[in-house]
Write a protein that binds this DNA or RNA. Structure first.
Lengths: 359, 359
DNA sequence: CTGAAAGCGCTTACAG
DNA sequence: CTGAAAGCGCTTACAG
């Protein structure tokens, strides 16, 4: 009766009813045993018979039936604004997926493409499917308004912050990123450290500038507002950066992100300056292609995107199951986890040394 | 009774039973009407009452209950090997998600990270959740063995091909990509066209070479095996490419992919050659960062990743619902769709002109 | 045209 | 310790 080897394709699912018959027990007993709730409730010998029968028949619980009864699906809705335009998105999702798997959940993913109607319909669909909670994820740190329709269920905001500050979320510690970058240049002995910021109206704009400022103030050098220049994402911003570098003659440059570092590299080449010799340059993001392809390779501050994805699911599950996040066993390699018991967790960045900053 | 505005949070789901009571009809009638199966079965006036009651109560069908009964979940398992390492992955997923939404499905996504055990457990989990079919997706064209455990359900392979050639799939038309690239150089007037290939043991290796060969043979120039050189992904492959360019003095270079184009750019710069003047260079992939950041910008052949994701879901749904793929209404902008009625659909690439090939 | 009833595969009071 | 029974919210023969 028992097929050896696992190669057989079980087209049809074995039910609890069949296990009950095969083991001569009741469905109740089978359910109890297979859910490990049989202590003091089912005769150990019967339990053993049930376990063997389940094993032999290849019984797998039907999640649908269980969910209909328990009102819990062990399913999480992952709503993201876009996933194709940055390399970070993939890591965020990957971390979330891994956490879901480790915690016994599965992710239902939808992409809104920043379209409110698609978002509304997507959320409605996910609710019909009975998700236990929502991840509301963004591809870069933004201030967002969480849709009303999410509020009926536990929700965690990922790589964004709720405009009202009430929905828990995980986001980068922006000042920490630029502080780390600046400190790296200070400890490399640089004195005239230029900050190349952004004109984009996003939280990172002010927060990264403040991290730079704090690091300078904490150093013997002090902060000098002269050494701050904002440029846009537009490549034509070359001129602004070019002029600033000619005029200010920095020996170190902290870039708002890696994209800006590419502009800075261009400027320096044009001016006959050598990155890592005449002037050190450091970025933020450690984007694989950029940091790898620039010569010399760009030293940059890396954000823990995978970890943020992982933590966000851990946080959400702790809310859903009303458990202390500390009790969820998380992989140790996840490193310095922000305290998930707090509503808002901040993720630190780490300097990845390449060759654009002297050791 | 009726709340105006959609701002209210319905914490609890309205059931068919409540709609039946509110409208004074039976659950049967409600179900029939709400599923548009009431023609000739329910009095139109009753149907109207039911519809109004459902509307007012904000009734949303419970997918779980429906699935338990119908054995269909309108859920698709999306199994991918990795999603964080290439920019294409996101587009594949995005296309799949959009198609799922358009066709009334939702995606359960898992990532195997190329780990067989994770894959097995993931598949088992998805089956317990009752997915109607599987997408087995890869981040670059590979020959794969489809796990036995998938075979019980409709399955479509995405950006890969089944080693036995029996599971339907969607993959790039590799020869077409390199043919298009080569033809672009030929029509730009180049005569000594070098092919910089790869040493990696992947299907694209031979197939792209054959596309180049065919294009050369179809041209007045003819194919010359001398003009083919393979280099690895390793950046140290610089030397191989450098030597070949010095020796062969090509006036055009077809690169296996954009990564190799970056090496070619480096070689040319070292040799004092100007891309787009001394020698035209064309890549394959049109990777956002590479094609944008190289100077001059890299002309490259772009693969329709978003479309492949979309088509794969359309194909899968057509199998699940036993419908002619042609009946699934697909967005027109999806362009030249490969025939989804065939088992294996091949996706073409398109030359995206930048500045590295003369017009 | 209509609706009571069965049943999908589970879990869980409840009565023994 | 045990198991019959109810019920989760649907769909769908079936009998009227």
């Amino acid at each position: 009766m028992l097929c050896r080897g696992g190669d057989t394709v079980e087209t049809v699912m074995v039910t609890i009813q069949e296990v009950a018959q095969a083991s001569g027990a009741s469905k109740t007993a089978v359910s109890l045993v297979l859910n490990n709730k049989d202590a003091k409730r089912v005769n150990p010998q019967v339990a053993e018979r049930i376990r063997r029968a389940a094993e032999e028949l290849g019984y797998r619980p039907n999640s649908i039936a269980r969910s209909l009864r328990t009102k819990r699906t062990r399913t999480l809705g992952f709503i993201s604004d876009e996933i194709a335009s940055t390399p970070f998105a993939g890591k965020l999702i990957l971390g979330a997926q891994d956490a879901a798997r480790d915690l016994g959940y599965v992710l239902l993913t939808i992409n809104t493409n920043n379209d409110a109607q698609i978002e509304d319909e997507g959320i409605a669909a996910l609710r019909r499917y009975g998700v236990d909670g929502f991840l509301y994820a963004f591809m870069y740190h933004r201030v967002v308004r969480v849709p009303q329709s999410l509020l009926a269920l536990p929700t965690v905001v990922l790589d964004a912050e709720d405009v009202d500050g009430v929905i828990p979320g995980i986001m980068p510690d922006e000042p920490h990123l630029s502080y780390a970058a600046t400190e790296r240049l200070v400890s490399a002995g640089r004195r005239r450290i230029l900050y190349v910021g952004t004109t984009a109206p996003i939280p990172a704009r002010e927060q990264r500038l403040s991290g730079y400022r704090q690091a300078m103030e904490d150093s013997p050098i002090g902060f000098d507002a002269e050494l701050v220049v904002d440029i846009s994402d537009d490549v034509d911003a070359f001129d602004v950066a070019d002029e600033a570098i000619r005029r200010l003659r920095p020996d170190g440059i902290v870039c708002f992100n890696d994209i800006r570092a590419t502009v800075v590299y261009d400027c320096m080449k044009t001016q006959g300056l050598v990155v890592g010799e005449d002037t050190d340059v450091i970025g933020i993001d450690n984007q694989p292609f950029i940091a790898q392809m620039l010569r010399p390779r760009l030293t940059s501050v890396e954000l823990p995107h995978y970890e943020m994805g992982y933590w966000s699911v851990a946080k959400l599950v702790s809310i859903i199951e009303d458990r202390d996040p500390a009790d969820l066993v998380l992989p140790e390699q996840l490193g310095e986890m922000p305290s998930l018991t707090q509503s808002h967790a901040l993720a630190y960045g780490k300097v990845i040394d390449k060759q654009s900053v002297r050791m």
